[in-house]
Design a protein around this nucleic acid. Structure first.
Lengths: 219, 219
DNA sequence: GACCGCCTCCCCCGGGCGGGGGAGGTCCGT
DNA sequence: ACGGACCTCCCCCGCCCGGGGGAGGCGGTC
């Protein structure tokens, strides 16, 4: 009995790619597709897949919300494999709380994708596959050592991540301050911390790093 | 006799997606794949495809260079369909000079992709399919009118595009000036023009626009 | 209780950035 | 020959930004 997979991604091309990659495996069967998070629950109820390959950024309902919804409303729910472009802290923690079982980079090679689905299906928690860790090292301490989960000295704090996200939307310090309802000096502190941790010289470089790392995504 | 297509893209997932989308058509046959521009010429010689679906950003040899190489060295060359994420001026003009026959957005829906391949194969020049034009309108004059090819008032000039690309790599005005071997004031002028044309308030917003529009891509 | 990370706010200060306006040069097509 | 687009350089000016350093409160853990 093959592992059944439901694909959830708003980009048809990505779905087609996953279908091609996964469907080629004799022990894996793609049983359905959805283009947004809202369509997932009824499909899971009907198809009862073993694994849901879930995109993070989607219209109507994002991957985290959809994960939460599935696990909350479906009895004997499937394993959730979150498909993203980078393990950013918030997504990781939010998805963990939501109950996701693993993460996968879209850039991963086909063999890695297949491997991830198999592991997830077997009940393995695939929190930091090699491909994710490779990217995660970009947020290391500059000495080549990867940022470990415990010591968060070089990882962005929640507030810093929030500030970076607003920076990456083009907001000025004053606008960010207004948005977060804090003083402008506070924002400056967070910005400085972000710049230091990302090794960026100015906010522009920080935003570039945010895009390059997948912390924020185009569109 | 079906239309034969060679896929050239460094991302396996995109190749798999294109293969799935195109291969499902009875009148289209994917006859080969390449992961970089350098591998294209021998494959074209051997497989003699009708159409080459060519990514722009690739290792070793980018899509423009590869297009140029194919048309220069192969007798009775295939049609070249450039697969990109945005029609930026330089790519369009460079690819046109290189001899590309059309453009296609990766974000296009499967039906559009299939349509584009068929048109290209029939000898149609597919310079501005609807999906591309839609994005191109983002660079219109702000009044909703799309930027026409003739009046380039809101389109970036060559120098401006160059400056924007360096901005998007995190360079300061002084660094850009040094790189381009011009005065700092000149760079300021170009930066101001870029900001005005993109409707950006500062360089950070300009870089964001560059990423969002696909003018530059992560990685 | 002591420590520590995080968030918050404050000071001074220099420099890069962006706005506004102007101007000379080349190359091009009309 | 003229206009127009483009690239280049220049002036003044205001200000947001980022660096440096410091400090208090709060919530965790040990």
């Amino acid at each position: 009995m093959p592992v059944t997979v439901l694909l959830v991604d708003d980009e048809p091309l990505v779905r087609a790619g996953l279908r091609a990659v996964l469907g080629a495996q004799p022990d894996i069967e793609v049983v359905g597709e959805a283009a947004d998070g809202a369509a997932v629950i009824p499909l899971v109820r009907r198809l009862r897949p073993d694994v849901v390959a879930m995109d993070v950024r989607m219209p109507l309902l994002d991957g985290i919300e959809a994960t939460r919804a599935v696990l909350r409303t479906v009895a004997d729910p499937p394993k959730i494999l979150v498909v993203t472009t980078f393990e950013d802290d918030e997504y990781v923690y939010e998805a963990l709380r939501a109950g996701a079982d693993g993460f996968l980079l879209k850039r991963a090679r086909p063999a890695e994708i297949v491997h991830a689905v198999r592991l997830i299906a077997e009940g393995e928690s695939l929190l930091f596959p090699a491909s994710v860790r490779r990217l995660a090292e970009r947020y290391g301490d500059g000495a080549g050592r990867p940022a470990r989960a415990g010591t968060a000295r070089t990882r962005l704090t929640g507030r810093e991540a929030e500030v970076l996200r607003l920076m990456a939307r083009g907001l000025s310090n004053a606008e960010i301050a207004a948005r977060l309802v804090v003083g402008a000096e506070t924002v400056k502190s967070h910005v400085s911390a972000v710049l230091a941790k990302l090794g960026a010289r100015d906010r522009t470089q920080a935003v570039i790093a945010a895009y390059e790392s997948g912390f924020v995504e185009p569109r």
